[in-house]
Design a protein around this nucleic acid. Structure first.
Lengths: 197, 197, 197, 197
DNA sequence: TATGAATGAGGCTTCATTCAT
DNA sequence: TATGAATGAAGCCTCATTCAT
């Protein structure tokens, strides 16, 4: 407790990160000023720079959070003990639900990568690649065992599905007619149907 | 003729638009300064403000170009005289090819919408909606006539496919293993397979 | 005439440079803010950055001016048609007069070198070295022909004299008892007397 | 003892002063942040402000140290029991050796005086004046007794010599060809030769 | 004796746009 | 039709110092 939480009980760094995430998603990284962030978090600029080396570090933090979360979930589903079509379906649906539940993170993720410095960008790309490959491996597994069609290269199938995930932040609205789970179910269905032999 | 083309024969406004398109795609709209644009186009700031009212107008111009082009092509394919599955397939493949052939336009389109003023943004959204609805109508037509499955709402199917189009600018590289037509073929296949009853 | 001189007839870049020179000499480079400079010059910050790329460029400009001036004068005296002791004496006295007449430039020169970026610093050092060597050549010429003592290495003699030039900005006051020419005469005398065989 | 020396046996205040001296000499006073100093000394900011009232106090401490040391040495040589030319020669050589042995102190001394507050600056000037006068008295003594030429005002001679001392921090390198004693010998020679009647 | 979070003022720089020519 | 000097607001970041613990 005490000083690090002044006001509402949440530690300053987390307050800053939450404010930055919301503002980056709403207005874009470049359009969000440090001043707006600190005002939204109820601290001063000095405090921000006490915890984060730069505005870009805040962005990097968002990326780390997203990457870690998604990779963990994918690993859990992919390693499960179930038929490959079930594992793929669960993983494909889960990434949709998780993305919708963190839609701010997602819009930032897909729209602000070029705002990261080249070296941080490279690190992020490397982690995404790892994620992509894990997902692709699932598809290839099914293709080899014949439960999935091999008509389309697995790489392309991955990009097909992730295109739709990426796109969610463009059209999904929490007050729309479909729940996250329903959307996830439909998108996973489409993927699996496209893969039918 | 004459002064408006100084140097290489292309009129100044087009030179400016070409320079802006490339730079916006490479660096993002906010990261591109008016100074950079005029330098890349080989003119001065005065010239830019002679032809365009503001930096945002250049962006708006890119949007107009993309929207007009895609709508024209979609209309042509959708109105063709052919079975619905063929019309959908052709339209779905064509938007992929056209997008790849104008990848700079596409990255700008999907990434810079929030840089347009609210009113211009609204106009763009309206036109996209029109495009979306024309595409959706094709799918609904097939669903009604039974050639497509009705398991997934047509709206969602549209977003599924356009997610993958949107995503192209993230992963497609001209020097990659697949030609634009091959990619288009695969993505259209995936869509139609997902729609099999 | 016209816009570039608004106010008092001197072009803006020169006004800025004059203001910066005075302020850098009075307060030091780091203690002088860009704000102070533009206020003293009667322009806005934007104008400064229209003409100079950075605060450091202003400093670099002072260095260029000093180096060019001193090198020209040394070359003129060293190349004259006169006995070496006369050429050395004239050169040694002249650098004192010139330094006193540009005392602001001189204090900046000797005190602010470490504020230049490494690469600019290197360039300045190279030019100073050239100056040093021209001066040393004069002394060596006299040592070889026997009119100067060879007891002290010529390099050290150069540094001995330039130490006193460097030091002028520390103690010389225009309202003191000695005119620039008198000081110059005395310091040149000291040098030549120290070199008597 | 105990906590004040944590780590390597040197008391905290001295560690701070040593770190500050090195950093001020390397980068200049303004370019050195309190953060850098405490990091170099291996302590925290709180510790620095426990021992020193401000960053400026650290600078003031360097000045005190230099002034005390040089004055003590000059007094010793000037008060010795020897002919005036020998006393002057020894004093002139000694200040060179001492300066070279404390080159960091010297660069700070000559370059950072304007960073002291007006009142501290005044105190330092007064002490330097006292030093200057003691040195000048030696020269005047020799001039009166006829062993030194009176062609140049004694004040100017002092400044001539101290210019070269001041200048040492600009050009002297420990790995150069001359030892401190050799440089001192040469510079003292030059002074005495210049004073030959 | 020492910590380190937090402040608040100020620093340098960038930039879209205007306007006299 | 075009120039480019100049503006003015805003942006990111640094830093010496304080203070509750």
């Amino acid at each position: 407790m005490a000083r690090t939480t002044d006001g509402n009980g949440t530690p300053v760094p987390q307050r800053l990160l939450a404010a930055a995430t919301r503002l980056f998603a709403e207005q874009g990284y470049d359009r969000t000023s440090v001043q707006e962030i600190v005002e939204a978090a109820g601290v001063t600029k000095g405090a921000l720079y006490h915890y984060f080396g730069s505005k870009e570090d805040l962005l990097q933090e968002v990326y780390s959070r997203v990457l870690r979360l998604q990779q963990e979930r994918l690993d859990a589903f992919a390693d499960a003990d179930a038929p490959v079509e079930e594992r793929l379906r669960d993983a494909a649906a889960d990434v949709v639900v998780t993305t919708i539940e963190n839609l701010d993170d997602a819009s930032i993720f897909f729209r602000s990568m070029h705002h990261l410095s080249p070296e941080k960008n490279k690190r992020v790309r490397a982690e995404r690649r790892r994620y992509h490959e894990r997902f692709r491996a699932l598809i290839e597994e099914g293709q080899k065992s014949g439960v999935f069609s091999s008509a389309t290269p697995a790489d392309l199938v991955v990009d097909y599905h992730f295109g739709s995930v990426h796109h969610l932040s463009t059209w999904y609205r929490p007050d729309g007619p479909l729940s996250p789970e329903q959307v996830a179910g439909h998108l996973a269905d489409l993927l699996l149907r496209a893969l039918r032999p």
